[in-house]
């Protein structure tokens, strides 16, 4: 019984035997990947290595050719249910809402003000009353430091503010897991920290997170585990201070070397 329990804990999110192809390109090659509750995992690797695809497999935004995904023991999707019925779609919608996703390009809704961006899905998916949804949204916006901006249009927000709005929108659904796809890659350097600070706070609060990132410094601060991917496979994974400092594989060593060359270090 105990064994069962720990096992379930280890596989809070479980991606099993995932293979994804885009035409002739193999984006994910039979990947197995699990995340514990409360764990923060950073995915790193060269572009095109499949890290974003892996993230988007978790909430079935990119359904794989083969394999299955489950969250907290509930099946998110498997290759057999690619053509979903309306009912299956409803179930998937419920699960998706519990996996907050944050995008590189923010993808906030430009036709709605900040508050309404955070309110919409609460009304439609979580079936909350408008009053309840607005209270929740206001709190979420304050939490990410947008308390002064609740009636601003996304167009009038900076990149960092847009991204924090995107985070608030996801958090309002009370997610049990956050998926972050290069959340700071589209930001001006001086705006990166405001977003990373919000993510650090989330990590400290025990939020389970998978973060695709190029910010190795950030990864080493917040991640419990770093997974390095290349050619659609997880090549090496482990605690950040182990694998980022003394990588076992040649490929990771080369990748880290390349990043070090590009980062500016005054002598």
């Amino acid at each position: 019984m105990m064994v069962e329990e720990t096992k379930k804990e280890d596989h809070f999110l479980q991606l099993k035997d995932i293979t994804t192809t885009f035409g002739s390109i193999v984006a994910l090659n039979n990947v197995n990947f699990s995340v514990k509750k409360g764990e923060v995992v950073c995915l790193i690797g060269p572009s095109g290595c499949g890290k974003s695809t892996l993230l988007r497999t978790a909430n079935w935004l990119t359904p794989p050719d083969k394999g299955s995904v489950s969250l907290d023991g509930v099946l998110v999707g498997s290759e057999s249910n690619k053509n979903m019925s309306l009912n299956e779609m409803k179930v998937l919608n419920g699960i998706r809402a519990k996996m907050g996703m944050v995008f590189q390009q923010f993808n906030v809704w430009p036709h709605l003000d900040a508050l309404e961006n955070v309110v919409r899905a609460q009304l439609v998916v979580a079936k909350r009353s408008r009053k309840e949804a607005e209270e929740k949204a206001t709190k979420m916006l304050f939490d990410v430091g947008l308390g002064e901006k609740i009636h601003d249009w996304p167009d009038n927000l900076s990149g960092g503010q847009k991204q924090r709005l995107g985070i608030a929108r996801a958090l309002a659904m009370d997610p049990v897991l956050m998926l972050l796809d290069e959340p700071t890659s589209a930001l001006d350097p001086e705006l990166v920290s405001e977003v990373l600070n919000v993510l650090k706070r989330l990590a400290n609060e025990g939020m389970t997170m998978i973060i695709v990132t190029h910010e190795l410094g950030f990864a080493s601060q917040v991640a419990d585990r770093v997974a390095f991917m290349e050619d659609g496979k997880i090549i090496e994974e482990g605690p950040p201070n182990v694998i980022l400092k003394s990588p076992k594989t040649q490929r990771l060593r080369l990748f880290l070397d390349k990043l070090n060359i590009t980062s500016f270090t005054p002598s």
Binding site: N59, L61, M89, L92, N93, G94, I95, R96, A97, M99, G100, M101, F103, N107, V108, W109, R120, A121, V124, V125, G166, R169, A170, M173, L179
Partner: peptide, 9 residues
């Protein structure tokens, strides 16, 4: 994608 990720379909 943002809508779908929030369960809006």
């Amino acid at each position: 994608e943002a809508a779908k990720s929030l369960g809006v379909s």
